[in-house]
Write a protein that binds this DNA or RNA. Structure first.
Lengths: 201, 201
DNA sequence: GTCTATATTTGGATAGAC
DNA sequence: GTCTATCCAAATATAGAC
């Protein structure tokens, strides 16, 4: 009589290898640039021929896509670990710092997740969907802090990604723009307050 | 007796062909993405074999470099045409709009000039130097408008490029973030005023 | 699942004839 | 200055043996 095991050791191993390949892909992207990633190098890094990677991914774009999904998942995990205080604006400052640090610590990841510079690649809907959740987490915290207009959210994301962008492009590894982050958030809330007061009158 | 002509028709033609190649390169970059530019395609576009391009440029990176220089020059030209009014803050708003428009109208150019996503490429010192002048034009206008601290300039560039970035990445061709530009500059100056008032006390 | 072998395309770049 | 010819390397991808 045949028995169906609850664990499938084969697929477990398959998944483990997939994860190993993805980790190696991220390392190469960090070392040589995201666009310079090649299946040859990637295969060598995990001790395989390039062709064997096709047992795990359908194409190079599929690898980019899985890298994208992994990056989004990493961000969400950190975001969820972020608690709340009784001061909503401190919470926004905290999420801003979290996002800033996440982007700056790995420019290649920032490039894949938030810029569109790989010709021909865009994330699949399945990989992209979870990233919406990350935006919603910020959106909710902003609403708690008094910024509930959709345009408020747009301005906030622009403000933070602008600092990130300048930091990565013009002072990689430094903190020239990181030092401005809290001040920028204060400026943002000052504007929210002004508008709110105008409304009340 | 030999005569030295004041015009060198040969080098004039050489320069004209160089310019033609650069224009074609920009067109290809806009059509297929900056990183997808290839000498084969470029040669075909100007009616040459790829190898013949080496009579005009030493390498592919030299072409990127010339494209970079051309982009910077285009921006400077527009920037210089911008006059001044008696209201320094209107002037800042004007330069912000100019910069925003310049970036958004050609994302490939924005990528080459302000992001660092081509593996292995960075502009030569000669090509990069003029871009400092563009930053100084903004810096001077900001100082006229009361924002004279170096950190003020950093925050301003972050704010504007952030809006540009979001516009290009998340609403290409639209105006979802362009609509926020004037408001963002107002927010920025409101903060400058607050700080100035604090100082005076 | 990994390999060899191979196809196919593409890329940047050089040598030398004309 | 442009061409042909060629090189060399790298890239993604497929077929089929083991």
């Amino acid at each position: 009589m045949s028995v169906t095991p609850t664990r499938d050791r084969r697929s477990e191993r398959h998944e483990a290898t997939r994860a190993e390949i993805l980790e190696a892909a991220w390392e190469l992207a960090r070392e040589q640039g995201l666009a310079a990633l090649s299946l040859r190098d990637l295969g060598r890094k995990v001790g395989m021929r390039a062709q064997s990677l096709y047992s795990y991914f359908d194409s190079k774009h599929a690898i980019y896509d899985a890298m994208f999904a992994r990056g989004v998942a990493d961000f969400l995990e950190r975001n969820r670990q972020l608690g709340s205080t009784d001061n909503p604006r401190d919470d926004v400052r905290a999420v801003a710092r979290l996002f800033f640090g996440f982007c700056v610590e790995d420019p290649a990841r920032y490039q894949l997740l938030f810029q569109r510079t790989i010709p021909g690649f865009e994330p699949s809907p399945e990989s992209f969907a979870p990233s919406v959740e990350g935006l919603e987490l910020l959106s909710r915290r902003l609403a708690d802090a008094g910024a509930d207009d959709p345009a408020d959210l747009d301005l906030c994301t622009a403000l933070i990604t602008g600092l990130v962008d300048q930091q990565i492009s013009n002072d990689p590894g430094g903190d020239r723009w990181y030092r401005l982050l809290d001040e920028a958030v204060d400026m943002y809330f000052a504007r929210i307050d002004t508008r709110t007061n105008r409304r009340k009158r």
